[in-house]
Simulated scan of single mutants.
Amino acid sequence: MEQILIVEDEPKIADLLQKYLQNANYQTHWLNSGLGVGEWVRKEQPQLILLDLMLPGKDGLEVCKEIRQFSRLPIIMLTARVEEIDRLLGLELGADDYICKPFSPREVVARVKAVLRRLQAFTAHESDGVTLSASLLELDRDRLLVKAEQGEITLTLVEFELLATLRQHPGRIFGRDQLMTKVYTDNRIVSDRTIDSHIKKLRKKLAEILPDQELIHSVYSVGYKFEP
């Protein structure tokens, strides 16, 4: 049974989330503080974390950064602070998704299922080998890892899916709507800026291992393409 860690300081919200997730056949564990989350994750290795932004002891931003130092497990941020959305969308923290409070617990369960489906799709894809070779990059689906001659980087699920989609069709222009369909398989409504923010972060990471190459190009008013 897949285990979901809930890090939330409001008992009523945590209890509600646990009930809905357990009804959806997930095992749950609840922590009410940001302190000790990293240690618990290292020991128990859950499949996904629902992480509140505002926490006592250590806030969700710091917890997310800490976890990303040693794990790529999916993290969904819970936030009531609308002004933080741009930071979350920019994936400066490495979060895979976010949900605004107040939220429907059914929506949370649907988001959890969608993120875990994406992860399962990555591990099941290319069953004859997890590594896709290319002249410049190697994509390791199991570890969400991208390798080049000058080093390697780790990506979030969304970043990896964007890169894999663009890279499979060099030179082809993908509109933002097309990329949204590829990345968000649960058919949620997201803005164009969401894709732009993911691409911005992806480009920044790729520049770390290929500083002299611009791989993802913007096509004005249309979308993006992968072209070394």
Rank of each mutant, 00 (worst) to 15 (best):
T131P: 01
R118D: 14
V112L: 07
H217S: 09
G90Q: 05
K19Y: 15
L132M: 14
A80W: 11
Q120C: 04
Q168I: 04
Q27K: 13
I173R: 01
G38I: 08
L35P: 03
E214F: 04
R87M: 10
V109Y: 05
Y98V: 15
N25A: 12
F122W: 10
L136Y: 02
Y220I: 08
R68F: 12
R141D: 06
G171R: 02
R87K: 07
I76Q: 00
I209D: 01
A114E: 15
S191C: 02
H198I: 07
H169I: 11
N23C: 12
L119M: 09
D97G: 02
Y26N: 03
R106M: 09
V108S: 03
E39A: 14
L157H: 07
K205S: 06
P74Y: 09
P56F: 02
S133P: 10
K201I: 08
K201C: 12
H169R: 05
Q3Y: 00
L88H: 06
Y98D: 13
V158I: 09
L210Q: 02
A148E: 06
P102Q: 11
E152N: 00
R117N: 05
F160D: 10
T154K: 09
F103Y: 13
G57P: 15
D142Q: 15
A148R: 03
D96I: 08
R141E: 08
V112H: 08
L51G: 11
L144C: 10
G223C: 11
D177P: 01
G36T: 04
R203A: 03
L163K: 02
A110E: 09
R193C: 08
I13N: 04
L136T: 09
L163C: 03
K225C: 11
G151T: 10
M54V: 15
D192P: 14
T194F: 11
L206N: 03
L73H: 08
P211C: 09
V37P: 05
D192V: 07
I153W: 06
V115S: 01
V219L: 03
I49A: 00
I85Y: 04
Y20Q: 14
K65Q: 14
N187Y: 12
A124E: 15
D128E: 15
L202Y: 03
E2D: 07
P170I: 04
V41C: 01
H29I: 12
E107H: 13
F174G: 03
N187M: 08
D9K: 02
A95S: 07
K65W: 01
V146K: 04
T28V: 12
M77A: 11
D196A: 02
